[in-house]
Amino acid sequence: MSIITSSRSSAPQRPEASHPDTQSRPDPTTGWRQRLVDRSLVLLAAHSIDALRISLGLVILGFGSLKFFPGASPAEGLVMQTTEALTFGMVTGTTAVVGTAVLETVIGLVLLTGRGLRPGMLVIAGWLAGIMAPVALFPGEMFPGGLPTLAAQYVLKDLILAAAAAVVAAKALGARLVPPTNA
């Protein structure tokens, strides 16, 4: 509680609202609400990043497994085109799609299990650069007339995956989410 001093006196005085006659009654529900918030914060701090890691793993594993089935992934053509450009034509066609499927499956399993997470984050960083590459490699095709195509939108949604991967990487490298303590 702050103390307000008056220019008339050097003695500290309490604010007007602290006088017993002017105080409002405390809300009797504040106690249980605050306890609920505190418990929620503890649970979120303990489990939210792991939940993010697992959901990220499920999404990447899901997208990767689609690439094992010809024609099942809407990104199949984009994967072929991008991989061919990034490898200077050394990896093309079905090989590019299956290679990407294997990579995404491994990344998904690493995220799901949490095993090999630190080295896995390096692989994920490379993968993220690869999945964002079409924006830089094919800007005319991705944004004809300045507006994003469906393929560009598919790639741009990966910004969310990149942000989630950054949070998971921070925890894997030692960062911790800690709820505030009540003083």
Score class of each variant (00 low, 15 high):
Ile131Val: 13
Val155Gln: 06
Tyr154Pro: 02
Lys171Tyr: 14
Gln153Asp: 04
Glu141Gln: 15
Ala172Glu: 02
Leu147Phe: 14
Pro119Asn: 01
Thr149His: 13
Ile131Thr: 09
Val135Cys: 00
Gly116His: 11
Gly116Ala: 08
Met121Pro: 04
Ala172Lys: 06
Thr149Arg: 08
Ala169Phe: 13
Tyr154Thr: 04
Ala166Pro: 03
Val167Ile: 15
Arg118Phe: 15
Leu128Trp: 00
Gly108Met: 05
Ile107Asn: 01
Leu147Arg: 14
Pro119Cys: 02
Pro139Phe: 08
Ala163Ser: 11
Gly145Asp: 06
Pro148Val: 04
Val168Pro: 05
Arg115Phe: 09
Gly130Cys: 11
Pro139Glu: 01
Ile131Cys: 06
Val167Gln: 05
Gly145Tyr: 12
Tyr154Trp: 12
Ala151Lys: 11
Ala165Glu: 03
Met142Gly: 06
Ala125Asp: 02
Leu137Arg: 03
Trp127Asp: 00
Thr105Trp: 02
Trp127Thr: 05
Val135Ile: 15
Leu109Ala: 14
Ile107Arg: 05
Lys171Ile: 08
Gln153Glu: 07
Ile160Arg: 01
Gly108Val: 12
Val102Thr: 04
Leu122Asp: 01
Pro148Leu: 07
Leu112Phe: 15
Phe143Ala: 08
Glu141Ile: 12
Lys171Met: 09
Gly146Asp: 10
Pro148Gly: 04
Leu122Val: 13
Leu112Asp: 00
Ala151Gly: 01
Pro119His: 03
Pro139Leu: 03
Val168His: 03
Arg115Met: 07
Ala152Arg: 12
Glu104Gln: 10
Met142Ser: 04
Lys171Gly: 00
Ala169Ser: 08
Ala125Glu: 01
Leu128Val: 15
Ala169Trp: 15
Val167Phe: 14
Gly145Cys: 12
Thr113Leu: 09
Phe143Val: 12
Leu173Cys: 04
Leu122Ile: 11
Ala162Cys: 06
Trp127Met: 12
Ala125Lys: 13
Leu147Cys: 00
Glu104Ala: 04
Glu104Cys: 06
Pro119Asp: 01
Val155Glu: 02
Ala166Met: 09
Val110Ala: 06
Glu141Arg: 14
Leu156Ala: 14
Ala133Arg: 01
Leu128Pro: 09
Leu150Glu: 07
Ala125Val: 15
Ala151Trp: 08
Leu103Ile: 06
Gly120Leu: 12
Lys171Thr: 15
Thr113Phe: 09
Leu109Phe: 12
Leu112Gly: 05
Ala169Gln: 04
Gly130Thr: 09
Ala136Glu: 01
Ala164Pro: 10
Val110His: 00
Pro134Phe: 08
Ala133Gln: 07
Arg115Lys: 07
Met121His: 10
Tyr154Lys: 00
Ala163Arg: 09
Thr105Gln: 01
Gly114Val: 08
Leu137Ile: 08
Leu137Ser: 09
Met121Glu: 02
Ile160Gly: 13
Ala165Arg: 01
Val102Asn: 03
Thr113Tyr: 10
Leu147Lys: 15
Thr113Ser: 15
Leu137Met: 12
Thr105Ile: 07
Ala166Cys: 09
Lys157Arg: 15
Thr149Gln: 08
Val168Ser: 02
Leu156Cys: 08
Ala129Phe: 11
Glu104Pro: 09
Gly126Cys: 07
Pro148Tyr: 09
Thr105Gly: 08
Pro119Trp: 07
Ala152Phe: 14
Leu109Met: 13
Leu122Arg: 09
Gly126Arg: 04
Val102Leu: 11
